[in-house]
Nucleic acid binder design. Sequence first.
DNA 1: CCAGTATCCTGCAGGC
DNA 2: TGCCTGCAGGATACTG
Length: 273
Amino acid sequence: MPELPEVETVRCALKIGLDGAHVTAVGGKSVMMRRPLDLQLLTARLTGAGFVAARRRGKSLLLDFDTPGSLMIHLGMSGRMMLCDAAESALDHTHLVLDLSDGRELRFVDPRRFGLAVWLEPGEETIDPSLRSLGIEPLDSALEELLPPLLHARRSPVKSLLLDQRLVAGVGNIYAAEALWRAGIRPTRKGSQTSLQRLRRLAIITREVIEEAVAQGGTTIRDYATPSGDFGYFAVRLQVYGKEGQPCPRCSIRLKDTRIAGRTTVWCPGCQR
DNA sequence: CCAGTATCCTGCAGGC
DNA sequence: TGCCTGCAGGATACTG
């Protein structure tokens, strides 16, 4: 479900929604997610903790409390954060529940369990495997300087490179397809056979797409929603994602779909070279 | 080290 | 109606 813009939207909502909140109790089921969900540890660290800040790195959320360490959450494909009244009945696959002092609950729901909810002790943030190797943030102004040489040094399709979190942190299947279409670059083109000039343009366009999507509150395809249940409105701006078979908005050639690195990729054979 | 594939899991749409 | 297949916003363990 969630790429950078969706996670950023959730972060902003939690920052406001959790302001002044205290955790009174921790609940859920110790299920197997991408890593085991350790409710014992989470309960020990979070009970009584007051919310302080919500941060984001790539597609990971980091929630800080007035206790050392942080709660790291990754939404995977189907993960969702919900901020709701405790009386509201819980959805299926609600794995973690933080009871709040004001009668609300923060719930982490993830049917497919590709997500993650992990307590990071102080210092673990820099060594955790899913954080330590993340590449540059697309919103960082150094992107157009740092990314092109990295892509140019690789022989994989540019599409795979954009999805590689070790190179750029936060781009997923939707925004990779959109950025490549806007940049006029064929997704199967190899990094090494794309000029630095074009890669620089791709980097700039990638940031633009991500910025626009953040401004629209992300993209709702089927079930993405903010913690209060709102949808993202970037879907109306998608030009190629999910539109295979339709005419290209730029050149009217029929959009094709190909599988690259195991992911469906929609692109235009007419104007993406 | 690099590149490509298989895999984890549930839900849903589409074909028959 | 039901059963089957394949695909879905992601990351990583494994192969060659």
